[in-house]
Design a protein around this nucleic acid. Structure first.
Lengths: 367, 367
DNA sequence: CAGCCTCGCGGAAACGCTTTCCAGGCCACC
DNA sequence: GGTGGCCTGGAAAGCGTTTCCGCGAGGCTG
C-alpha cells in the first residue's frame, strides 16, 4: 500500500480519503466529517482522536467531492480585460486575498477584448461551476451578460448592468476624482486642457470623458473637439493619441488621460517630441497604479483604489451567493475616486516663471 | 420544474444534468457520456440525437463530478512570487493561454515571499487536487518543496530543484544574456560597472549576480565589493540601492540590474539625484517586461522570454502528468536569454563627446 | 420506577459523472 | 440452421464527501 494508489486506467487517485482517517480513528466517516467541519455536537474526545488521525495521515479533504454534494464550489470567477495592464494584477491580488480569507478560491480570466475568448472563458467558468462572477472589465460586452444572466447566476458588474435580482453593480464615482483633477489644473492656471480617452465602446471610458467635459464646462472652460483624442487604455494608444495632440496648431497646456497606461504612453510621446513635463505640458493619469509614482516625473493621477473595488466586489458577490448575507438585498456599491498630486502637473508654460521652477523641482534630462 | 432546482439545504444545484439530456434524447446516460466524450463506437444517429439534446438543454458537464471519478482535475497550479511585478502577469497570461488551449485550467497563487502564505497556498492547491504545480518563484523555498515532494506530485521548478523522478527543472541560461550585456557595455568603453542584485536568498538572484561578475572577469574588469548593491527585485529596492551607489566616491559609469523593476527604480533614483541616463550613466535591466520599452529612456535589457518559459513549463508539467507524453522522461528544459539594446546605454561620460550626443539621440540606435 | 425526551454516533443515501459489466441482437461462418 | 463472435446500449458500481435518519444510552419528569 503506497501513498499513491492507481486505478486500472492509470489515473491518479486521492492518496488518503476520509475513510482512511475514519479507520485509523476507529470512528465512522460521518464523525470524521463532523469533526473536520467543527460541528460542535461531536464528543471532544472523539474529535481529538479524529484530529490526531488527520494529522498522522496528512488527510486533506477533497474539494471536488465537497462541491459535488454541497452544490457550491466556493470558487469566485473574476473576469478582467487584460491581465498585463498593471491595474489588473493589483486588483487581482486584492480580490484574491480577500476571497481566500473568506474561504473562496478565485478563477481568473482575461478577455483581451476578444468575444470568442470571452465566450470560452464563460463556458469554462460554468463548467467549473463557479458560485458567482465579478466582471471587472469596465465595460459590458452584451453577449457575455446574456449568457451569464440566463443562468440566474450571481453577478457583479462595474458601472452598469441589467437590472435583475441576481446582478449587483459597483458604481464608480468618476466625476468626483476627475472634477478634482480639472479643478487642480484650473487652479494652477490651465485653460487649454486636452483629454485622451479610453476605447469608447467601454462605458467607463465614455463616463470618464463625459466627467471631464462636464467638469471643464462647470468652470466655464471650453473643450474643442480636437482636444479630445481617442486612445485605448494602453501605452501604445496613449503614445499615438499624444502624438496627434502634439501636432495641433496650438498645443494644450495640460492633458488628462483616461488611465495611467495612457498617461505613460503620453509621457513617452512628449519625451520623444522633446516636450518637457510638467514645464511645457502637464499630464494627469487615472487609476493610480503602483507604477505611477515611479514614472519620470511621478504621475499626478486620480486614484481609484483597487482595494476598495476588490472589497466591494467580494462583498457584493457574497451578498448574491449567500441568501443569509446581511447585505443580500443591496444592489449597488459606491466606489470613490480622488486626486493624488505628484509632479507631472505644474503651472502652464509662460506663466509665473519663478514659481514654475519651484513647482517642477526636478531637472528633466535632455530638456 | 424550473431551470434551477433547490435541495433541502437551499444550495444551488446544477441546472441540467446528464440525466436530463438522456431523457430528452431517449437514450441511456451512458450513451450521452460516450457521445459527449466522442467515443467512436456510438451509433452516429444516436450521437446526433444526443448532441441535439445537449444543444437544446444547454447542458454543460460538471467538471467536479468528472474530476472526482477520473481522478484528474485538469487544473495546473502556478505559483509566482508576486503578481504585481509586471513580469509575472505576462508569464501568467502566456501560461494560461497555453494551458487552456491544451485542456487545462490554471490555479494561480502568489507567495509574496511569505512562508505562511505559501503554506496555505499549497494546502489549497492540494485540496483542489491540482494535477501538477509549476513553481515559478525563481527561488526555491525549501519547506514548500518538502511539502509538495512528499505527495509525489508532478512539479516544475525554475533553475534548480531536488533530483527526483516527479520533478522537472527549467534551466535558465542567465550567463548568455548577461555576458552579452557586459560585452555591450565594455564595447562602448565602460570599465566601471556596478550591479544591483535581487534578494540574495533566491538562487536565481545569486545566479544573475555571479554571471555578471564572471562576465566582467572574463574581460579583465574588476568589480569592487562596493559596486555590488543589494536590491530586492522591486522598484523601491532598486531606488534605494541606486541611491547608495550614487553616494560612492567614484560613481560607476554603468549599472546592470537583476531585473527590470530594479532598473526602473534605479532610473528613478538617478532622476532624483539629477544624473542623466544614459549621458552620465548607463542602465541595463533584466527580463524585458513590456513596460521596459516605455521607460524614459527606453530600457536596454536582457530578455528572458516569458513565452519561452510558459511553453516549457506547460510542456514539462504535462510530461509529468501524462504517462504517455513523448517527453515523459525528460527532466530539464533550457531557456535562453539575450540582450535587447535600447536607449538607456551609451558611451561612458567624458569619452568621445561627439558620439555621445549621437548615442543618446531619440532615434533608435537599431543595433 | 416507568416512560419520554434529548443527545451523539453510525449506517446509508445522495450529489453528477465515468466506467465496467452484462445482456441482447445481429451477422457470418461452419 | 445453429452456434460463436462482436458490437451496442442499459444497468450498476463506484469516486469522496455531506447529510439524513434511526438507534441506543442516559437523564429527567411524573
Amino acid at each position: 500500500m503506497g501513498t499513491t494508489r492507481k486505478s486500472r486506467t492509470g489515473a491518479r487517485r486521492q492518496a488518503v480519503s476520509i475513510r482512511d482517517v475514519a479507520r485509523r480513528a476507529r470512528v465512522s466517516i460521518a464523525t470524521v466529517s463532523r469533526a473536520v467541519n467543527r460541528i460542535t455536537s461531536v464528543d471532544p474526545d472523539l474529535a481529538r482522536r479524529v484530529w490526531k488521525a488527520v494529522e498522522e495521515t496528512g488527510y486533506v479533504p477533497n474539494t471536488q467531492a465537497r462541491a459535488l454534494v454541497s452544490g457550491r464550489s466556493h470558487i469566485l470567477g473574476l473576469i478582467v480585460s487584460e491581465i498585463t495592464n498593471p491595474f489588473f494584477p493589483e486588483l487581482v491580488q486584492e480580490f484574491d486575498n480577500l476571497a481566500v480569507a473568506q474561504g473562496y478560491e478565485v478563477m481568473i480570466g482575461s478577455t483581451d477584448y476578444d468575444p470568442a475568448r470571452t465566450e470560452a472563458l464563460i463556458r469554462r467558468m460554468l463548467q467549473r461551476n463557479v458560485d458567482g462572477v465579478a466582471v471587472m472589465t469596465f465595460g459590458i460586452e452584451e453577449e457575455l451578460v446574456k449568457k451569464l444572466v440566463e443562468r440566474e447566476f450571481p453577478l457583479v458588474f462595474v458601472d452598469a448592468g441589467p437590472d435583475l435580482p441576481n446582478i449587483r453593480v459597483l458604481k464608480v464615482n468618476y466625476a468626483e476624482g476627475i472634477r478634482q483633477a480639472v479643478q487642480h489644473l484650473a487652479a494652477l492656471g490651465h485653460r487649454s486642457v486636452a483629454f485622451i480617452t479610453g476605447p469608447l465602446h467601454l462605458r467607463s471610458a465614455v463616463a470618464r470623458r463625459d466627467a471631464f467635459v462636464k467638469s471643464m464646462a462647470e468652470l466655464g472652460l471650453a473643450v474643442p473637439m480636437e482636444h479630445i483624442a481617442e486612445g485605448n487604455h494602453t501605452m501604445e494608444g496613449g503614445l499615438e493619441a499624444m502624438e496627434r495632440l502634439v501636432k495641433l496648431a496650438e498645443l494644450p497646456t495640460a492633458v488628462v488621460c483616461s488611465n495611467d497606461m495612457t498617461a505613460i504612453g503620453a509621457l513617452h510621446a512628449l519625451e520623444r517630441t522633446t516636450h518637457s513635463v510638467p514645464n511645457e505640458i502637464s499630464v494627469v493619469g487615472f487609476d493610480d497604479v503602483h507604477l505611477a509614482q515611479f514614472m519620470l516625473p511621478p504621475l499626478t493621477t486620480v486614484r481609484m483604489s483597487c482595494k476598495d473595488l476588490a472589497v466591494a466586489a467580494v462583498e457584493a458577490l457574497r451578498a448574491g451567493i449567500e441568501p443569509e448575507h446581511p447585505k443580500a438585498r443591496r444592489r449597488e456599491w459606491e466606489i470613490a475616486t480622488r486626486l493624488v498630486v505628484r509632479q507631472s502637473t505644474a503651472f502652464p508654460r509662460g506663466s509665473l516663471p519663478a514659481l514654475v521652477k519651484q513647482g517642477t523641482g526636478r531637472r528633466r534630462p535632455n530638456s
